[in-house]
Amino acid sequence: MTSSLRLRAGLVSIVLLAAFLGIWHLATRSTAPVATMSPEYAKLMGLTATQGKSAMPGPIDVGAKLWEHLKRPFYDNGPNDKGLGIQLGYSIARVGTGYLLAVLVAIPLGFLIGMSPLLSKALDPFIQVLKPISPLAWMPLALYTIKDSSISAIFVIFICSIWPMLLNTVFGVASVRKEWINVARTLEVGTIRRAFTVILPAAAPTILTGMRISIGIAWLVIVAAEMLVGGTGIGYFVWNEWNNLSITNVIIAILLIGVVGMLLDQILARFTRMVTFPE
């Protein structure tokens, strides 16, 4: 029954994709009447005016261009012409660095706050104020203090991915079942051992959920951050191709951002499943 459900769902997905591509193709066909104009003027006006071709590329154009990119993902022809693999690599490296730094800070700090009601109450107003700040608002301050655009981007990733992890760790640690803590207490388990053998495994699913939310946010933010700082990365690529008026490349970049985001999310989802325990 499940396999047949999966099969049917897959079929519906394919049909929907085909319909979407079909409508896209039809909507971007050449339809407008071709205006007659002098050849010099036509050169200036481009294909949209001379052949009635839509400025929006069709699925076939995008597919062909994507194939071209996929054949050569790592070429480097100077600062404004790098392969998509390189651009994505830069973005992933920035997200990875900022995110790992956030993990290193958020989880130990979350543990402390979660285990100490005093710290929890004392730090709560700061967290509540800092949490809703758009990570990009930090950018000027980061650029001014760090004086390096690439590290500033990493800082922005760090600051945006820290909150969900921190709050989930605090919540997970603070809401470990009393009876499990009592088991450790009756067994005279020390604080450190208790933290690693009872609280960490009990809070792990909640912590991993926070990490999963964080990686999603980090990937959302990196595109915007790279549009601002420029130089390298998929966000910069999008903006650069917009300046080049290459809508095809913009669409390809959008597609790849989605795919990479999905992969990152799936990796964290797999980790979450590994630490989740059935009750």
Binding site: R177, E179, N182, V183, T186, L187, A202, P278
Partner: peptide, 18 residues
Amino acid sequence: GTSLDRAVIFQSHALLPW
């Protein structure tokens, strides 16, 4: 405080599920 001399059997068994 607690002691290993006094073992507790909890109503909800309180096993560590992992």
